[in-house]
Design a protein around this nucleic acid. Sequence first.
RNA 1: GCCAAGGUGGCAGAGUCCGGCCGAACGCAGCGGCCUGCAGAGCCGCCCAUCGCCGGUUCAAAUCCGGCCCUUGGCUCCA
Length: 496
Amino acid sequence: MTLRVTNTLSGEKEVFEPQDPDAVTLYYCGLTTSDPPHLGHARGWVHVDVMHRWLSWLGYDVHHVENFTDVNEKIVARVGEDGDSEADVARSYIQDVIRDMRSLNLKRAEVYPRVSEHVPEIIDLVETLIDRGYAYEANGSVYFDVTEFDEYGELSNQTVEELDAQGDPEERGEKRHPQDFALWKADGVDPVDIEEHRHPEAAPAEEACETAQTWDSPWGEGRPGWHIECSAMSMTHLDETLDIHVGGQDLVFPHHENEVAQSEAATGETFANHWLHVGLLETKAEKMSSSLGNFATVEEAIAEHGLGVVRTFLLSTAYHSRATYSEETLAEAEERFDRLQRGYERAVEAADSVDAATKVADDDLREAVEDTHRAVPEAMNDDFNTREALAALLELTNAVNRHVDERDAYDYRGLRRAIEAYEEFAVDVLGLPLGGDGGDGGDVRLAEELVELVLDVRESEREAGNYERADELRDELDTLGVDVEDSDDGPTYRLP
RNA sequence: GCCAAGGUGGCAGAGUCCGGCCGAACGCAGCGGCCUGCAGAGCCGCCCAUCGCCGGUUCAAAUCCGGCCCUUGGCUCCA
């Protein structure tokens, strides 16, 4: 069984072939740390996380790198709000990103490089480009000359001529060609450049710009351009040729296009063999983005719905498709995740109960487990189709429910295998928290004891026929977020 | 305008690469039944799809080819 992935470069689904048969290099364009991370960012992270997990499952040693762009005009524009300098603001948002990544249960990348720590490598790369005739200096800035790179436009399917036709030729300024892009920018940040990104409560533009970082270079004081960092950092921490480069759909042009140009011009090697782009998260008919202000932050979403629901929501749409965020789609994800989790819990409880027998065999259940082992890898190998993988796990859930409902004695071995399938695929591959309580520890234990106490009281009321009082207690618990369900074996409950 | 990605049931969303297992998955919502003191959960069954439009290829098309319409994204702020 082979993994196939959709490559933006060819526009086709192709067989994935790493350079080293045992290892994979995976680079993900992380975000500019100038705003709180929102669910759109989480969508990218979670899908890359699942790619990482799946590649590991397939037996590859995964070398995964994700960058933070901590040098950028947009960050300078926030000075005064979340920090007193560009570096401060970046640090503050990097902290948020790390916090959110942890709460999303992401596998760690090998390295999270930052632009501010890679300026020497960036300068080296720019010098190489100048030496090789692909870049030129102008008034202390350095630009990439797109006419020198024949393949420019291949990733986004455009030609330099087409691009020129769209642009305003007067915008050229000190560049030789309108499509040329900055590798190095002379001096600090000009207040006019941050005006459009500033919030009303931010520091005056001039003051903010004074905190912008600059570095010495062969061309004088300056700052790295936006695109060069990813080339420099991926080469530093991985290799000149990446197996997989992932990023948001919105980065195809110009960011990724420019990465290809500057990297391949510098090394003469293919920059990335497989380009994967994550579709954008949209609300109604609009993408979710910091600049539009229509986003839900990762922190809020997890606080409100929980990790399992958020991940289920994000994985319920294949990574390459656009996804819709709304109350309804999130509510649906909640139902899907709850159903999965209940199925898992029922399987565990049945397997642990005294009614579990070693000599009972339910062929339907066992077949369903087999199907899961066939269907999930098939789905994941088909361009990381997480939606299909989830569907397969939901089918397993149906079989578990049927078995527990219909049988008096439980098929211990079948249940054991079902539990293992949940743990292998739902927990390990999709990263869903099926069993855990989220790690709250002692508080949960106390809460459990208190809920059980209330339920004991309620049972006495029920036995006495005081259903009105019993329902009141159940309603009270419900308003606290505790779901109570009665069954033949007594009440069960779930904490919020 | 140029480039790209899409248009599948009330919603959401797979399937399209490699045409037939698709009389279209999983799920949500809705309806009926079982279970239940009630509710929930669960189970069984049902309802809702001329797969954007038109034409072509084929024994056979959601899937391939051509044309058209529409939507969204990108076009140097963006995951």
